[in-house]
């Protein structure tokens, strides 16, 4: 247990970041209109694709004779890239669609 507490003390900087980021995350999307719920979800989905960085590190550190690490790491890189690329492209397509549909709707709103 003292081991664990020690570890927390060592990483207190990270823990502060976590707490602040929770508030930033909540603040930043607090007033999103409901039409944007799905694109926002998709955009957030693309952003958590940062796991790919972990996958790259795993892959880059794997020893040449450690086949388990090589194979799983490679798979992780592929899946992570899918998440990033697919996520951003799908979000972009969604928003493209919204642009066409939303312009008149937005005009209506300002007209009211």
């Amino acid at each position: 247990m003292s081991d664990f507490l020690n570890w927390i003390t060592l990483h207190q900087q990270i823990i502060y970041i976590v707490i602040l980021m929770i508030f930033v995350g909540i603040e930043v999307i607090g007033r999103v209109p409901s039409v944007l719920h799905t694109p926002l979800m998709s955009g957030a989905n693309a952003i958590h694709g940062v796991v790919i960085i972990g996958a790259i590190i795993v892959m880059g550190k794997a020893e040449h004779d450690n086949y388990l690490a090589l194979i799983l790491g490679f798979l992780a890189v592929v899946l992570g890239t899918l998440n990033v690329v697919g996520g951003f492209v799908v979000t972009d397509r969604m928003l493209e669609m919204f642009k066409g549909k939303n312009k008149p709707a937005k005009g209506n709103k300002t007209g009211h």
């Binding site: 909540i26 719920h37 952003i47 958590h48 972990g54």
Partner: peptide, 23 residues
């Protein structure tokens, strides 16, 4: 991000975790 002491993974992940929960 915690594991590798990697700030961008940490911020990105927590940001999505918090925003996603609110969403």
């Amino acid at each position: 991000g915690f594991l590798y002491d990697n700030k961008v993974m940490l911020t990105g992940g927590i940001l999505v975790g918090a925003a996603g929960t609110l969403l």
